[in-house]
Simulated assay, not measured.
Amino acid sequence: MTIGSRIKMIRKTKKVNQATFSNQIGISQATLSEWEQDKYKPSVDTILALVTQFDVNIEWLLFGITNDSLRDDGGVFHVHNISKLEGDLISEFRKLKAKDQEEIIDFIRLKIKRYES
């Protein structure tokens, strides 16, 4: 996976179009399009804006690697490859209140225990 495809993955996971995404990090839509097509690489300043604005792991963004599967704070982008279904689940999960999120986690743990038995 290239840096351009990782940038596109961030944008798609956040469910925003190129115009909105590019405005959020202070670049033109044309520049974003060229990155996503791997015609050009982003500057250091822009990489830092991506990391800050979207809470992205810089090692994952630059190199596609990480030492662990999930960040301590639950950030999504430490995961090497997530399916669209997993991305959708995370996006919807983030919309819930904390109590509801805890309920979902408890339910998932219960399901996992049942499968392990």
Rank of each mutant, 00 (worst) to 15 (best):
Q101K: 13
S91D: 06
Q53L: 07
I108K: 08
Y115T: 12
L85T: 12
L85W: 03
D55C: 05
T2I: 06
P42Y: 03
R109S: 07
I47A: 01
L62W: 02
I105Q: 10
V76K: 06
D106P: 00
L70I: 13
D72Y: 09
Q37S: 14
R6E: 09
I65H: 06
T31R: 09
S28K: 08
E116H: 03
I82T: 01
D100E: 15
F77G: 01
V76W: 04
I105R: 12
T66G: 10
R109M: 05
F107E: 07
K113M: 08
Q53W: 03
D106M: 07
W60L: 04
L70Q: 11
S5A: 12
L50P: 01
I3V: 14
E36S: 02
F63N: 05
S91M: 07
F21C: 10
W35I: 03
G26M: 09
A98G: 09
E36H: 07
S117Y: 14
W35C: 04
S5L: 06
K99I: 09
T52Q: 15
S117C: 09
K111T: 13
E103S: 09
D45N: 15
K8Y: 04
I104R: 01
D73A: 10
D88N: 13
I3Y: 05
S28Q: 10
I58H: 12
E86W: 00
N81F: 10
L85A: 14
A98F: 11
Q18C: 05
E103T: 11
L50Q: 05
E36F: 04
L32K: 00
E102K: 13
D73N: 15
D73I: 11
K8P: 04
V51M: 06
R114E: 15
L61I: 08
L62I: 14
V16M: 15
W35G: 01
K14N: 14
M1R: 13
N23G: 14
V76M: 04
V56M: 04
I90Y: 06
R71L: 07
T2C: 02
R71I: 02
Q24H: 10
K84L: 10
S22I: 07
R6I: 02
A30H: 06
T20V: 15
L50I: 03
R11L: 02
F63H: 02
I58W: 10
I105C: 04
K84A: 13
E116W: 00
K111V: 07
M1V: 09
N67M: 12
D106Y: 07
E103H: 07
S117Q: 15
T66F: 03
D88S: 09
R11V: 00
I47D: 02
A49H: 08
Q101D: 00
N23K: 15
S28I: 12
D45F: 11
S117E: 14
G87L: 05
F93R: 03
N81S: 14
I27V: 15
K111M: 03
D88Y: 12
R114S: 11
